[in-house]
Write a protein that binds this DNA or RNA. Structure first.
Lengths: 151, 151
DNA sequence: CTAACTGGTAAAGTCGCTTGACTCTAACTC
DNA sequence: GAGTTAGAGTCAAGCGACTTTACCAGTTAG
């Protein structure tokens, strides 16, 4: 479901949704590009939500499934893939024998670093092109917007 | 408990990607909510890209598929659903007997209006909560960001 | 005229997810 | 305690949304 150019303005200003989506997709694309360049070429776009802020470290699968708003079976499928590719492990929780805890492997931690670095690169680029103070404004505005539109 | 390493945060403060994504998802959620309230409860999230600005009116399926960056078969599947649900029709193109043209039905046009209204509502709400001039700043900044991160 | 190309579709297979049923464990009753 | 209820995780079947492959009808180029 990727589109990029369709929301231009045939009449009226571009809608706010498109203005948010395009840069967001640019961030994602850059993260994936860097991952693939740095030896994580088996990292599928579908895994990004699992690894995204604040990361799955220490969480139980059910908690993460709830946070991501997907079924626990769907998450379990993704976790199986990520475990198979050595990004993380599911370890038994010593405090609750029903539960497991997600633990990043060294490879998963390394991938996380690449992702954060990629984001930092994007932010630096935007800050350079907008100017540092306008970029700071943008972040503040987006922060407020996140408070407003909290689900 | 022995969860001292669990509490360690592998990720820093929210990254710009998340700040863009959350409000964008809020826009989409509001569009779908309004659609479902207004009698378009058979409207699936997957159809949104097809109907998005400036809409598919008059386009050939291949053109639209190219714009949406999906295969023409995938689009054709979506068009089949949308035609079945009376949102649009595929009419033969008189100028090219191989081709078809997408035409919105009255129901499809009505759904488009609901979507545009929903976006206007969200924008009004954000403008109210941020203040009109800060919202204008936000739009300007996002506009620039879209120029920068154009693929 | 033929050959290459383009637009659209159908058929079959794939993948990621959902639904539903199950097991195991924990916690809450009586 | 025993019995019940609830939660975590997993397996299996199935389905929806694709992709891949193949194809025909119509168009353009040589």
């Amino acid at each position: 479901m990727k589109s990029s150019e369709i929301d231009s303005k045939p009449f009226g200003p571009p809608m706010i949704g498109a203005l948010l989506r395009v840069p967001w997709e640019a961030v994602q694309a850059h993260m994936l590009k860097r991952l693939h360049e740095r030896g994580f070429d088996d990292f599928d776009p579908a895994y990004l939500p699992v690894v995204r802020y604040p990361g799955p470290q220490g969480l139980r699968p059910s908690e993460l499934a709830t946070r991501l708003r997907i079924s626990k079976q769907a998450l379990n499928y993704l976790l199986g893939e990520l475990e198979r590719l050595d990004y993380l492990e599911r370890r038994p929780d010593p405090d609750d024998l029903r539960s497991k805890r997600i633990a990043l492997t060294p490879r998963g931690t390394a991938a996380g670093k690449v992702i954060r670095k990629a984001v930092a690169e994007i932010e630096a680029d935007w800050a350079r092109q907008l100017g540092p103070e306008r970029f700071a404004d943008l972040r503040t505005l987006l922060d407020d917007l996140n408070q407003i539109s909290r689900p």
